[in-house]
Each structure stands twice: as structure tokens, then as C-alpha cells.
Design a protein around this nucleic acid. Structure first.
Lengths: 220, 220
DNA sequence: ACCTGAACACCGTTCAAGT
DNA sequence: ACCTGAACACCGTTCAAGT
């Protein structure tokens, strides 16, 4: 990254800082990101950023908020199964597009405000489908945790797949397993590698949950 | 923490270093943990630790491995529903006992080796219950992601609950929601706060998944 | 092998100051 | 208000050296 030419005076703004931070996070990941590096990218001293943000934490919060606000995480047409499916898929896609979100969300959980549109759509959908208040709330929390967890796993596995050192390491540990102690695990090594990650794995889990929810509605 | 009296020569070991690191992580969390602080706690110069570990990352990996190896994440009695339930609950409990695990697991996903006993028990259980290889593998991955995600959310919410500043902040943002734009979310605020976290929330999700799996078996 | 202090190349942030 | 350089109190780690 060439250190940008110094920005002319008064061209900096909260928005520009956040956008640049997001771009750096998308390109280099959370490890490569720092206040100093961001300042250099903007052609500015590190302290300049403190005019717009109280500190690094507040800056990252702003990035997170921007990602969640900009995204369209709603779906209010079709039956409730379709809505739930679509909203969850959109949240997953947002994370796949911006893997830094995992870190930003796991440092501090999404408060109501952050993903308000998704929460609204899900809660309204579930209520209209006939779930009582408490079940709707529980289902919302469960779905959120599920999508974050499964997608997080997916992103990490993809990242490991990139690093040749790690790939070899995983290979070695898997082949080093004792077939006497872990016969089922050894037998499933290929299946695990074959199925891990991807749309199919995500949708498998999602459909399983929807199937469970359907049984809930039938029991009413 | 009083800086321990210098350890007598040759009393240090990989094991002691890992145990002390784990204790510090349990007490102060991942943010308070550092190579220098750990060394001080052991009454030793920071560089001493590099005799036992290549670096911080390898050290944290060892802590993670110890936690997962020591824990009993198996259950091979009762019907498959009971086994799945028990294994998932044990993994959750391990994370609740050692919240640092979330960070240790989200930096790098559990490879086969790490939670081999849990994987073995789950895969064997699912296979014996009649699921084919691919479905068993997918279910394993899905359950792992689910437990990690939901429990991670739970731990974070609990942590936020501790911090009075954050509590007030959440309160403010929730009450600041526009009832026109987010009527369902506003209506569910109380239910969300009432149900969030705890055994009940976790088991709600788990039973939902098990119900979905049962439908899978019925369809066969 | 085990352990050391000094030093290096970084962090995020405080401070006093300049426009 | 916007922006600055110098400095502070930290990091994890390399290095050359000591037992």
C-alpha cells in the first residue's frame, strides 16, 4: 500500500475514515488493521483520527454499525419458512462478504440496535406464524447464535484451507488419529472434509431447524 | 497479583506454564493475558518461556489442547437423543467454565484432533442411529457450530450484563428504537431480556435441532 | 538444556501545541 | 474545530550471552 498523498485539509470525515477502515479490514483482515496503519492510508497523522473517534474500539464499532445498517437483512414476503431462510442466508452472506464481522460481532454481541431490521423481520415473521412471545424471542436468539456460529466455523475453515502450512498440519493430525480409539472419526474423515463449509452445509442446518420449528407449530 | 518469588532453578515445565496461563486466563480474561504478565506471575523473565514454546500462539494452542483433552466430552449410553444432548451440554459447560475457550476456538477452529472424543462420540451415535455418512458429518459440523455460536452469544451477553456502562447503553438503545419502524422488536424487548441466555435458552435450541433430526430419521 | 537482560520494532493513546 | 509531532507505557520477539 503506497502511503497516500496527504489529504487536503478538511476532506476528512467520520464517514471517510469508516469506509477506509472497512476497506482495509476487507483486504488485510483484523490482524493487519491498526490505528497507525489506517492513518497512514489516509495520509494523516495517527492522532488526527482521534478528532472523529474516542479510540480504536469506537472506530471498530462504527465499522460494524455501518455494515449492519447498510445491509438489507429483511424479508417479509412468502411463508414464514421462506422468510426465516432468506433472512438467515442474508446474514450469512454479509459475513462471508466481510469476514471481519465475525471478530467485530464476537467481541461484543449484536445489541438490539445493530441488526434491528433483521430482528424485526424475524420476530414479526415468527409472531405471525403463531409462535407466542417467548418462543419467538427464544427462536430469534437461537437462530442468531446458530448463523454466527456455523458461519464463523465456515470462514475459519476456509482461512485454514488457504494456508498451506495449516493444511499440512491438519492432514497430519487427522492421519495420526488412532483408529482403535476414534474409529468413527477416522471413518468420517473423508465425509467431513467433503461436506465442510459451503452453501449445502449451511442450508442443511437451517432446514433442520426449520423442520424442528414446524413440529412446534403442528403441536399447537 | 504479587510478583511471585523467583522460581528455583529447574522447577519450570511446559505443564506448569500451561496451568498458570490457564489460571490467568480464567481470572483475567484474554485481554489481561500476555507473555510478560505470565512470566512475572511465574517469577521469571519473559524470555524463559521461549524455552518451552515457540511463541505466544503455540502457548495458547497448548492451553486450548489441555482444556479439550482434560474435559470429558463423551456420552455413549442411552438413546441417540440423550447422547447428542449430553455431549453438546458438556461442551457448552466447558466453555462456560472457561470463557477464554471461545477466543481460543474462534481464532482457529477445532481441528479433528482437538475435540476428538466429542467428535467420535457424536459421529458414532449418529451412525448407529441410522444416519448415512454424509448426514452424520453434516450434523456433526452443524451441532459444533451451533453450540459454539449460541454459547458464545451467551457468554458475551453475560459479560455485558456485568459492565454497568454497557448495561445502560443497551437500555438506551433499546428504548430509543422507533416503534413505527420496529414494532415487533419493541414489543419483544422484555421477552428477549427475560429469555436471553441460561440453560433454558440453550436447551430450547438443542431440542429444536433434535426434533428436526427425528424428522430426518422418520423420513427414512 | 535452561535462563537471562538489553534491545528492536512495534502498539494505542496522552499531552501540549499549532492552525 | 481540525490536525500535528513528540513522548509514554506498553506489546511480542530477536539476539548475544551466561549457567
Amino acid at each position: 500500500m503506497p502511503p497516500r498523498p496527504r489529504a487536503p485539509r478538511n476532506t476528512l470525515s467520520r464517514e471517510l475514515v469508516v469506509d477506509t477502515a472497512l476497506r482495509m479490514l476487507d483486504e488485510g483482515g483484523i490482524e493487519a488493521f491498526g490505528v497507525r496503519a489506517l492513518a497512514k492510508e489516509l495520509g494523516v497523522g495517527p492522532m488526527t483520527l482521534y478528532t472523529y473517534f474516542r479510540g480504536k474500539e469506537e472506530l471498530l464499532d462504527a465499522v460494524r454499525g455501518q455494515l449492519l445498517d447498510t445491509a438489507s437483512l429483511t424479508c417479509l414476503h412468502g411463508d414464514w419458512q421462506h422468510r426465516v431462510r432468506t433472512i438467515c442466508q442474508r446474514l450469512r452472506q454479509l459475513i462471508l462478504d466481510h469476514p471481519c464481522l465475525i471478530h467485530l460481532l464476537s467481541t461484543r454481541p449484536p445489541s438490539g440496535r445493530d441488526a434491528a431490521d433483521a430482528a424485526e423481520a424475524l420476530l414479526r415473521t415468527l409472531t405471525e406464524a403463531g409462535f407466542d412471545e417467548e418462543t419467538a424471542a427464544r427462536t430469534y436468539t437461537m437462530l442468531l447464535g446458530h448463523v454466527l456460529g456455523v458461519t464463523s466455523l465456515e470462514v475459519q475453515l476456509a482461512a485454514e484451507h488457504e494456508d498451506p502450512d495449516r493444511r499440512r498440519h491438519i492432514r497430519d493430525t487427522m492421519t495420526g488419529l488412532d483408529p482403535k480409539r476414534h474409529p468413527a472419526l477416522v471413518a468420517h474423515t473423508a465425509a467431513l472434509r467433503r461436506t465442510a463449509g459451503g452453501d449445502a452445509q449451511f442450508e442443511f442446518g437451517l432446514e433442520l431447524i426449520i423442520a424442528g420449528l414446524e413440529r412446534h407449530t403442528v403441536l399447537k
